[in-house]
């Protein structure tokens, strides 16, 4: 078991830190920047996530917008986790994250701090919050794949 998972107070602190001081929390402009705006009527969150791809590597992940603690912290943790990964590595990490949220088997090591959301499905209404940023990246990577074809 990852060390983080052993201590709920550490998990709580990680989420609070990422919510109060989110990482990569400003957008940038540029021709090489992919952007995805995510908002929905059922969820209050209204965020934009950005990706910069350099060849096969995710060189930057950014986000901004209005979101709850769960969505902000989860997206912030995701930006840390995916920066510098290859597209294939990123897809694998995202798949692990969705597996965790869906209560399927997943690889803790690959998720690092993102394991703090392992119990989010206890409140079904919050799954959307925990996954909104991850969903945005998934969609951008799919769109990039389509274009590359």
């Amino acid at each position: 078991m990852s060390d983080i998972l052993k201590d709920p107070e550490i998990m709580r602190q990680i989420i609070m830190d990422h919510y109060q001081y989110p990482h990569h929390h400003h957008l940038k402009e540029g021709d090489d920047v992919l952007s995805k705006h995510m908002s929905s009527a059922s969820c209050i969150d209204d965020i934009t996530v950005q990706l910069v791809l350099a060849d096969d590597v995710i060189s930057e992940v950014r986000f901004d917008g209005v979101g709850c603690a769960i969505s902000t912290a989860s997206t912030s943790i995701m930006t840390e986790l995916l920066t510098g990964k290859t597209v294939d590595q990123a897809k694998d990490i995202i798949a692990q994250f969705f597996a965790m949220v869906d209560e399927r088997d997943y690889d803790e090591e690959k998720l690092e701090e993102a394991v703090v959301f392992c119990n989010v499905s206890k409140q079904a209404a919050r799954i959307k919050c925990a996954t909104i940023g991850w969903q945005a990246v998934t969609e951008m990577l799919e769109e990039a794949d389509e274009k590359g074809k």
Partner: peptide
């Protein structure tokens, strides 16, 4: 903020 994370 702290208690709102209790469910996790």
């Amino acid at each position: 903020l702290k208690s709102s994370l209790d469910f996790l």
